[in-house]
């Protein structure tokens, strides 16, 4: 058993280079989501989401499609970063923790991409 403290062991090895990456990504997406989520709610109130035709018309507008894709990408990125922290806090280390994190990241990527494709399909009128 080494008598070295954990700090002494880590000293001199240099930084991990991306120590604040997760934190920074979470704040960046939070800042992006502030206007984007307000815009989304406002848009839904305006169109009323009543019939298919009015939703399609709304999504066919270029600016709406751009903002909607930005909203979706920021939302799923932010969500998986947050869920990752929850998993890291409540699941003890081990394969369950790692596999849950991987699963969450894959689900977020899949659902995010599916949403973007759906938006593009409506936008392009396919």
């Amino acid at each position: 058993m080494s008598l070295q403290t954990p700090l002494a062991k880590a000293r001199g090895l240099g930084s991990a280079k991306q120590g604040t990456h997760h934190w920074w990504q979470q704040r960046l997406t939070a800042i992006a989501l502030t206007p984007l989520s307000l815009w989304f709610i406002y848009s839904q109130l305006i169109i009323g989401s009543v019939d298919h035709a009015s939703v399609t018309r709304w999504m066919s507008d270029t600016m709406n499609a751009v903002l909607l894709i930005l909203f979706i990408v920021s939302l799923f990125h932010h969500a998986q970063l947050g869920i990752q922290v929850v998993i890291e806090d409540y699941i003890d280390s081990g394969w369950q923790k790692m596999s849950s994190i991987i699963l969450i990241k894959f689900i977020a990527l899949f659902a995010g991409l599916a949403s973007v494709i759906a938006i593009l399909k409506v936008f392009l009128g396919l």
């Binding site: 979706i72 599916a114 759906a118």
Partner: peptide, 8 residues
């Protein structure tokens, strides 16, 4: 996501 897929 499901809502967007339903629209599409």
């Amino acid at each position: 996501c499901f809502w967007l897929l339903a629209v599409a």
